[in-house]
Design a protein around this nucleic acid. Structure first.
Lengths: 348, 348
DNA sequence: CTGAAAGCGCTAACAT
DNA sequence: ATGTTAGCGCTTTCAG
């Protein structure tokens, strides 16, 4: 028995101002052919009634919703919330609303997120796919029939344009740096091998190790502090079997660093460490942690620009380009050298 | 000349399934009085066409939008993005969409955010007001005519229910702890005195200092590393004029800690430090930093519960309760004792 | 159990 | 310069 609040309608404004609905409509959407006098009356009526146009009704008329979506694993993750912030700004500049959906890297939530966006008839959206290879996602996106841009992770078959960081090179570079320091036993600690980005980083690590003829020490089931400390302690038990650690994710880096501290292993004298992805305080802890820095802002910015270019540009883009046509935009990462890799401050 | 994509409509589904629109509608909104056979036909048509109901059209029929809003200063701030994550989960459990808007603590953006939400006819929303005293915001919220809950900061006149942390007691407690350690020259470093939370924390600091008959050392224009180091260095220049530092915000804590390190001041031997709000690695740096911990999750959870209680409960809540009726829900903060305050680990 | 038809609030021809 | 009117896609009486 709810009386779902009755906000004033355009009709009521018209009545109150003593004009037709068209006139009010014109006043709302940029003044055009309206006499100053009438304009004033209408504006007063609008103010008095506290009128706000009903977005749903406008959408129903078949126009752009001026709404874009963002689908990411988590809204609390610093990487993605930074992206969201940047994209929100871009959307606002285009007078669009941004709707952020979280998937937690789960297939079903991802599907729901995309469907929800489509029900809201967003003009387009940006997505960080949970599974880059998923054919299911791929076909879901193809049906969407609105411009889409993949962020941080590409989509199989390259059906949509994507903007990603160079995970392979970033990891390769970091590993090489460790090797250049003379470390031989370099372990790579990670989890979530289902993620595209992680797999690329692993490939980079492997490539560098192979090129230097070093044995690959890969641990792929590190997902919390316990498993991290465990893995490190185990390697430490056999003397000379661990020189350096390369962690592929923020939290793993912190865990590994913590574990090394806990196990009273001098860093980097006994074991060096480089992490993937920078984070607050990475430069404040002692030793300061060397990391691979990702171009987060540019990633988001580029994706946003790409999306709005499609939105405003050639209407042709109603459906994704021919399969496999889209080559990803790859942004460079950089090695942020601090101390934990063995370098001294101000003297790499 | 854009042909704004033509997604299938309920009509087309009906035609294809050889039934009336009513039947299709019924199938979509929970099956009810529909023959299994018809049901199957309709479902097949829906699948084949990839039909997704047009949200705008449903809303226009005058029902709940199943959409709620969240208005916060920033979506990248860890505090608020955590809140957003929690609230998104709650919304989803109520089959609602959450729209997050950022204000950057600016009046105009806040107004725009609220208006945008109203245009989208959200069923209700949660807001962390930029200015708790603003009469303007207050009247804006009163006109909104949907359930609203204030988060982290109350709204002047108590026109909406609010859920906040006990900033006063939290700061008082921390200051007292410093005093108990025997520190006399305790400086409070902050900026953004326009924020309700900050002012409350300052009050707590002042109260504790006054009660101990100590001189208040308040710096209210700390907003970046430079100003922070500057203030500390200045105090340090007069020997014996600084024992401890109490920072009221995450980034200031990091800046102060960094500055102390940079100035080669032993922490906590020469100068102790306690920060407001916990953060990643606060426990990993050496010395580990003691902080006032806020009940972030509960804050968001409580606000969410409150909102949905109003949404689902008595429809009476069409307009905010009588002015001044709402007493805020105040959640406790806790002092997370680590080392920077002078305590030793495992021996406070 | 199913269908026909009346709008929801707004915009855009088309009149005036 | 302004008003009239026909839908946009959907839900919902009200008949059948």
């Amino acid at each position: 028995m709810r009386k779902p609040r009755k906000l004033p309608t355009l009709h009521e404004v018209a009545k109150r101002a003593g004009v037709g609905t068209t006139t009010v409509s014109r006043v709302i959407n940029g003044v055009e052919h309206v006499e100053p006098q009438t304009l004033a009356r209408v504006e007063r009526a609008i103010k008095e009634l506290g009128y706000l146009p009903n977005h749903a009704a406008r959408v129903l008329k078949g126009h752009r919703t001026r709404t874009v979506g963002l689908v990411v694993p988590s809204i609390a993750d610093p990487f993605f919330s930074s992206c969201a912030e940047v994209l929100q700004g871009i959307a606002r500049r285009h007078e669009c609303l941004l709707i952020v959906m979280a998937t937690h890297n789960e297939k079903s939530m991802e599907r729901d997120a995309v469907n929800t966006l489509m029900q809201h008839r967003v003009d387009g959206f940006i997505i960080a796919p949970s599974d880059s290879e998923s054919g299911e996602l791929c076909s879901l996106l193809m049906r969407a029939s609105v411009p889409i841009v993949a962020l941080d992770r590409p989509v199989a078959g390259a059906v949509v344009p994507s903007v990603v960081a160079d995970n392979f090179v970033g990891a390769q570079h970091a590993t090489r740096h460790l090797i250049a320091h003379g470390y031989k036993k370099i372990a790579c600690l990670t989890g979530e091998m289902n993620l595209f980005t992680i797999r690329e980083r692993v490939r980079g690590y492997q490539a560098a190790m192979a090129a230097a003829n070093l044995k690959v020490l890969l641990h792929t089931s590190i997902h919390d502090y316990a498993s991290c400390e465990n893995a490190i302690a185990k390697m430490l038990r056999q003397p000379g079997s661990l020189d350096a650690v390369f962690t592929l994710k923020n939290s793993t880096t912190v865990d590994a660093f913590q574990a090394l501290l806990q196990l009273r292993v001098p860093v980097p004298q006994k074991v060096a460490i480089i992490g993937y992805d920078d984070f607050q305080l990475a430069g404040t802890v002692r030793p300061a942690i060397t990391v691979v820095q990702q171009p987060i802002q540019e990633l988001a910015q580029t994706a946003g620009q790409l999306l709005f270019r499609h939105l405003n540009g050639a209407a042709v883009s109603a459906k994704p380009a021919p399969t496999g046509t889209q080559k990803p935009v790859v942004l460079k990462t950089s090695l942020l050298i601090r101390e934990s890799c063995g370098c001294r401050p101000n003297q790499p």
